[in-house]
Design a binder for these strands. Structure first.
Lengths: 140, 140
DNA sequence: CTTTACGTTGACGTCAACGTCAAGAACCGG
DNA sequence: CCGGTTCTTGACGTTGACGTCAACGTAAAG
């Protein structure tokens, strides 16, 4: 008879909510523990402390994923912080919701500019490839 | 009878190819002259020299536009340099064309990853806005 | 109980991408 | 010809995003 879920590598089947060490999340997301701590210094994540040791939960992993995607999109960490804080901020009152909706609009404008740039770059790349292939064909 | 095109603000109607000073291109592209010179230090642009003074032509403006778009997309300047060099590099022989086509493929893979990230971010933003608007409606 | 593996907090280093400042050269209008 | 504006080359400063290193705690394993 197997012991009931002492396997640390299968956390999702545990009764208690799963948690991870700094090394585990770092490895999983392909960054160093130093990077994770840096994000904590900037207030982008705030893992639980068990004594002095950091304990990461699903919420922290979600935020880390958002951070890394933001980075891939070229946003500075400070801006990323305002974004994910926006997602998490309490928005009970109408005034707060209005503010959040304004921020959303700003974000979208920015993202859509990036999308245009991206489409342009991809289009140019396609055209350039076409010309290269044509040149290559003429050489045969 | 008007003098034939002594107006420096209308360079495109000049008989000789139009050119610009560093301040002019900087202002036009919304960067400082220091930024433009920095790009030159890194070899991203190489304007003509008239004596000691830099003279910018259409080619330089094209490259500058590419650089700034690359920056908006979050690419480091070194990577941007390899990209625009790719567009400009001589590609007479088949082997060179093959190499260029390989590079194009790498670029495209990268850009498409970014596009996915971008679409995801925009989708999440849309969903988030929907929820906020719903919350707002319930408050009325 | 010591080793070994991770964990922790600083403090400092580094690299990219510029900004800032100083000290001249060069042209332009008066 | 002279002063003001614009250009030039350095040299150094700054900010963001971590890397690196030292010095130390701790918890399981042999």
């Amino acid at each position: 008879m197997p012991a009931p879920d002492l396997d640390q590598s299968d956390r999702t089947s545990s009764a208690s909510p799963p948690s991870w060490t700094i090394r585990e999340v770092a490895d999983e997301f392909g960054v160093t523990h130093r990077t994770v701590r840096h994000y904590e210094d900037l207030g982008l994540i705030s893992p639980e402390r068990r004594g002095t040791t950091r304990v990461y939960h699903r919420r922290d992993r979600t935020r880390l994923a958002l951070i890394l995607r933001g980075k891939r999109l070229g946003f500075p960490l400070e801006e990323i912080r305002t974004i994910i804080d926006l997602y998490d901020r309490p928005r009970g009152k109408a005034s707060q919701l209005e503010y959040v909706l304004d921020q959303i609009d700003e974000r979208r404008t920015d993202l859509e500019q990036r999308r245009r740039d991206l489409e342009d770059a991809l289009a140019e790349l396609g055209e350039f490839e076409r010309r290269c292939r044509a040149d290559l064909a003429r050489l045969t």
